[in-house]
Structure formats: C-alpha cells, structure tokens
Amino acid sequence: MEVLGIILAGVLINNFVFMQYLGLCPFLGVSKDLNMATGMSGAVIFVITVASTVTAALEQYVLKPLELEYLRTIVYILVIASFVQLVEIFMKKTLPGLYQALGIYLPLITTNCAVLGAAMLNVTKSYGVVLSTLSGFAGAVGWSLAIIIFAGIRERWKLMDIPATLDGFPLALISTGLMSLAFLGFSGLFANLVK
C-alpha cells in the first residue's frame, strides 16, 4: 500500500510542478509543442529515475557510513551532472532528431531542479534505495503529465491573438495557476497512505 501511496503522491497529490514548484523552467520553456514536451518527458523520467537510485545508494552506502552528509549537495550535483552528460552523448548519437529539437534544454536537465529536488525529497523522507527510485519515477511521471497537459493547451494558443503584454511568461504562469487549482482537488487524497 505504501507503493500505491508513493505513486499517487508523485503523480497527482504532490505534483512536482503544481504543488512543489519543481522543474518550472523547462515546464514553462519546452511546453509550446506537444511532441517536444513528450520527448522532454521521456528524458526527464529516465534521468530522474536513475538519479534517484544512484543518489539514494550513495546516501545509504557512502555518505551515511562515513558521516559525510554535509557534503550531500556537492556529491549529488556532481553525480547528476555527469550522468546527464552521458545521456546527452547517448542521445546525440542515437536520436539526433530529438536532440536537435530539444536544443539547449537537454544540458539544462542538469539545472532542472526537479532532478536534484527529487533526490533531496527522498532524503527528507528517508526512503531507501527501492522506494527512492519509485518516488523519483512517480514524481517524474507527474512532471511529464503536467507538461503534456500544458503543451496540449498551448498548442491551441497558436490560433489565438494574445496581446504582447501577456504573451509568454505572464500567460503561462496564470495558466499554471489555473491548472494547479484543479490539482488542489487531489490534496488529502488517501491521507492514510500518503506521506
């Protein structure tokens, strides 16, 4: 049941974008096109899931036994940065089309605070390696749900005549606010299962 709670919390109840303010830069930046949003989602789910596993393992088997928890931020960000570098090289070789489309955003996964944020949340909830992986995966799926929903909405804006003063960030932020109003309905869901 704890597993179900973690999945629901990650995807809906404590959604990264709408409830935790994580990963907002790529959420606002890469959501103009549905295909790009889907591609970015794939990359983010992969990176966050693996990064959650690796950081949780480091926490449990290295930082804790050596009492080096105060170096956590440095260790985590270095691990995440090098891992993202690997994904980038891999994607450039195998999926050049997607790599081209995601452009500057792929290196930005390093500074997507959802990756480090997911790892840090796992620490505060003191999940082990398995639950951390699950929690990271669920959170990333929730982030993807948010950006795919938003991209669907934004695709319709292409037909719309938006005044210059609202175009871009102002309207995107107001829309995010309206979307998170809808997600408020999930708060308190299965309160006995969700941490």
């Binding site: 303010y21 102002p170 309207l171 932020l173 995010t176 606010g177 309206l178 998170s180 408020l184």
Partner: peptide
C-alpha cells in the same frame, strides 16, 4: 498556495509589461 503564487507572479509580470 501554489495557485496564488503562480497567478500573482503572472499578473505582476503582465502589469510590468
């Protein structure tokens, strides 16, 4: 809450524009 935050910042940016 998050909705209030998003809408406040969006409205502030629009007013500034």
């Amino acid at each position: 809450t998050p909705p209030g935050g998003f809408i406040t910042l969006g409205a502030l940016m629009a007013l500034l524009n």
